[in-house]
Design a protein around this nucleic acid. Structure first.
Lengths: 210, 210, 210, 210
DNA sequence: GATGAATGAGGATTCATTCAT
DNA sequence: AATGAATGAATCCTCATTCAT
């Protein structure tokens, strides 16, 4: 039985605080649009102090991304080894949505990184998208989904777009719908919508299109 | 029969050239990540010369966005008034995809603008997303789609995510698939996939989920 | 009897217009604080057009100063040769004040030029201040004014300060007095005040100070 | 008996050094004619370093003016409350001249600020000129000076012009007289001249002019 | 004579980073 | 671990000037 978690040393606390505000700022303004002073200010520090915790702006950015992506990759891995059942996709989607709910900056960070072709893009592709594609394609083969096999990757990509897009496009729908897509109510609705979609997409329809 | 288009004055040519390279650079590195010198260099000019054509960086960025978004809005409007038939959605998707094929920077620009909450976000929401939502929701009501009415907006949003996402996430799939999602072959495949999906989504299924 | 003055060629008109606005702007913001574009704009021209009339900024500035100072120097010269009477000083002061009333920018221009040690300073000293000193000292010698001979220059300098200062310090007295020192009423009052002072300064008082 | 003044921290020293050189440069070339690089260079710094001490050029300029004007205002205030005697004006003039001797840039700064209508003009009028006017007018009323009451402000203004003008016009008299008006000898002579003038101006003459 | 477009030089300011304290 | 001060490089932008039209 584990005892109480020992309080992290203050330096560790500061480090996490920096990562938190940096994550928010990088997600909101991108790498180039975020200055070390901005981050320091938001963390109640001086820019110089950041260098006591990170080797520089690039290193800080990398640390933010690493910390954000790791749980996502782990989530993927745990599902890859899990019993592939009928509702596996629905379960994965729900879990991912739930995770992103607590880290809403993460999809934005990923999207920005992808858009600006950052250095972590290759790693993201290798550790996150490729496993997801392999896992998903295998699953679809097993299920005889209503798609051509060479459409399988597009289906997987579609899932990614739907999940990520819900977060990255949130601001514009907030404007257009007068409701925050990241509020709990809409997040749950979107999750249920995606699960419904999952069943629809994998069910064998009577007739094949095209 | 229209006569030959008169050659635009050279100054107009320069202006368009600047807009072209600025569009590419802003889409690739974001507003903050693109310097006036970069743009000038790509347009074979000095940074100072840019100011003979635009009032400043912000104005240039706005001009790029305006020019990019206008055709998109017009596309939407022409469809809003068109005969709403069974395959209206499929036709619209195809047209949008075809338009974006020739302006692949545009979805990235929009995504960046949305992410960083730029000033045009409100306009985008008003002129582009809101009409799309209204048009789509009306269409779905007519068709008795297999969704709850309060899910209709999510369906429309899903379409947007699928179209935009295909472009904004292209780099990572290029890495993961070893094939360029923006190459003609994959663009066509994605278009057909989306049209198939359109039929699937609007067909009345036997049983309702949830 | 001279016939009607022939209308100056349009180029001459433009030239004068440029000089007028340049005079005002240089007087208000100094040489460094005034841009060619400012001047051009105020003259309803493009900066490039200024170069059709003047060789450059420096040349334009010089022309402004020349044009402004010439009448002042001529005024001095005409008085130097005039009959030196008792009220010569009073008459000179009145004439100078009257001239400056129509060219209120001139004292400011001179003051700025003196402050920033421009190139025309030497010329101003030679053509304007030195003759004034010589003329004034001679006059005072003749009149047995109530001053030590080596104070004579100070008296002349005082006159200059009083006349120039009235114009250059006008803005601050406009603030402090709630009345414009350059309005006709105050200009006349100041002129009469200076003439009164002239009599006071040159009258032989009963007792000598110091 | 006060103990030794504690050495100011080095940062304060740098700040003062910057203010010193900025005062000289602003006085010599005006606000627009002085670049941050010039100031930095004269203070043995980089332009960027100036921003560690001041928020920008405008702020630095304001700080220079504030620092310069404060003692002047205080001088005025101390005299306003002092015993108004016959030679009060003479004493004040002497003190002001003595103060300006050690800060010869100050009158130029003020003159420039007045000429270009800077933001501090209103404050100068309120804190410096207006009290001086009130104090002086009161004094003159008490003394039955040889002037119409509505000429009193002109007399006060005349004093200001004579004191300020001596400094702001120094360069041109340096040229014309071959002697520096700001050298101790001439400064003292000017002070004695002004005091003599004070007595002359306030003595009741037998006859009234006008 | 007027102008739009182009440009090199320089303007103020911000940036990421270093270092002594 | 935190910071104030310093700085070189780069930011956006303005400037005076030129030149083809």
């Amino acid at each position: 039985m584990p005892g109480p978690v020992p309080a992290p040393p203050p330096s560790q606390q500061t480090r996490e605080r920096i990562l938190d505000v940096a994550e928010a700022l990088f997600a909101a303004h991108g790498f180039a649009g975020t200055s070390m002073r901005d981050i320091a200010g938001a963390a109640d520090l001086t820019a110089a102090s950041l260098y006591n915790h990170f080797d520089g702006k690039e290193a800080l950015y990398t640390a933010v991304l690493e910390r954000g992506i790791r749980p996502l990759v782990r989530l993927m891995q745990s599902h890859a080894t899990a019993e592939p059942g009928a509702d596996a996709a629905a379960a994965l989607v729900a879990e991912v949505m739930e995770h992103l709910r607590t880290r809403p900056h993460l999809p934005r960070l990923i999207q920005l990184e992808v858009l600006t072709g950052g250095e972590l893009l290759a790693r993201l592709a290798r550790d996150w998208v490729r496993p997801l594609l392999e896992y998903g394609v295998a699953e679809m083969k097993r299920e005889a989904a209503p798609w051509d096999p060479d459409e399988y990757p597009l289906v997987i990509a579609a899932w990614i777009h739907l999940v990520i897009g819900h977060f990255t496009m949130a601001p514009i729908f907030r404007e257009a719908l007068d409701e925050d897509p990241l509020a709990p109510r809409l997040l749950e609705k979107q999750t249920r919508f995606l699960q419904k979609l999952a069943r629809l997409l994998s069910s064998s329809p009577r007739r094949r299109a095209k």
